[in-house]
């Protein structure tokens, strides 16, 4: 097992981690603002991928440049997913905002099932091919055995999204409002922050990053069906918990750690136990840091 093998696994794990991170952001942000685990978030990722598939199939007939198709279908996927995310919040979570947290959680699970079956009925239960939209970059030729262009695009896009998100949260008024709501929603409201607007924006951002993840991973694996959101969603949720749910840097770190654990576990031990490694790691972290790697410990009574 040489060094280049190590790097392949490292980059593979990082690619996987990037996808988890894009989905985990939605979980952790929503949790940070309204203390809800949005189990339907994986479905938003799936809807983003489906939208991109439909748009790119249509645009494919025009003979457009594939990068352009990717960008257009990506943007429209973000738009659609955000619309779904916001609508979902209005229908399934807003009426339950004052209800016990368990009610909202069950509402989220119901939403997840609804969206899965909605796509199953409206589209198809079969696997569909996703077009290869990311071309082979020439400059990657010397290292294509280690890193291919799809992986590069995933890594770069994730990094850009993370930087933009950090700027948004740290340096804008909206970001300030979000941070304030997250710390104490009631107090923020008293100080004139429109909580509903903040929650809507949170859902838009979370859905948008999930949609980006959906488009990227579908271009990577070349296929999708109505069920892809479930497994990816669970893994991203684990990543968010691992990093400390509610914390944005924590979600990113947790996702990379999870991606690497799976990748190295598979590469050096056996892929039979891929999920086992992921969950053992989660257990170990939670034993020593119950609120996750970067999570703040809370003393609230639950």
């Amino acid at each position: 097992m040489d060094l280049s093998y190590f790097f392949e696994l490292f980059l593979g794990g990082m690619t996987r981690g990037s996808i988890y991170a894009l989905i985990a952001l939605g979980y952790t942000m929503v949790y940070g603002i309204i203390k809800l685990i949005n189990f339907a978030h994986g479905e938003i990722y799936m809807i983003g991928a489906f939208t991109a598939l439909i748009i790119s199939s249509v645009l494919g007939f025009t003979g457009m440049n594939s990068i352009l198709i990717l960008v257009i279908s990506g943007v429209l996927a973000i738009f659609f997913s955000s619309a779904y995310g916001v609508t979902m919040e209005k229908i399934a979570y807003k009426p339950l905002r004052e209800a016990p947290r368990l009610s909202a959680l069950i509402s989220a699970i119901g939403m997840s099932m609804f969206l899965q079956n909605y796509v199953l009925l409206a589209q198809t239960p079969d696997f569909l091919p996703f077009p290869t939209l990311i071309p082979d970059f020439k400059f990657l030729k010397p290292i294509e055995k280690i890193l291919n262009s799809t992986q590069l695009v995933i890594l770069v896009t994730t990094a850009v999204v993370m930087i933009l998100l950090t700027i948004l949260i740290k340096f804008t008024r909206t970001g300030k409002a979000m941070r304030a709501t997250s710390q104490d929603a009631k107090m923020a409201q008293l100080l004139g922050i429109n909580i509903n607007r903040v929650i809507t924006i949170t859902f838009i951002i979370g859905s948008a990053t999930a949609a980006i993840g959906g488009v990227l991973i579908s271009s990577h694996t070349g296929q999708l069906n109505y069920y892809i959101g479930f497994i990816a969603g669970i893994k991203a949720f684990v990543a968010a918990v691992l990093g400390g749910i509610g914390s944005i840097p924590g979600a990113v770190l947790g996702s990379f750690v999870l991606g690497w654990t799976e990748s190295f576990g598979t590469g050096y031990i056996s892929s039979d136990y891929e999920d086992v490694f992921a969950f053992i790691f989660l257990l170990v972290i939670l034993i020593f840091r119950p609120s996750g790697i970067l999570g703040r410990s809370q003393n609230d009574k639950v």
């Binding site: 996987r16 892809i228 497994i231 893994k235």
Partner: peptide
């Protein structure tokens, strides 16, 4: 159903 199989492929 895993997200990708790059580790196995490596």
């Amino acid at each position: 159903g895993a997200v990708d199989y790059s580790a196995v492929i490596n």
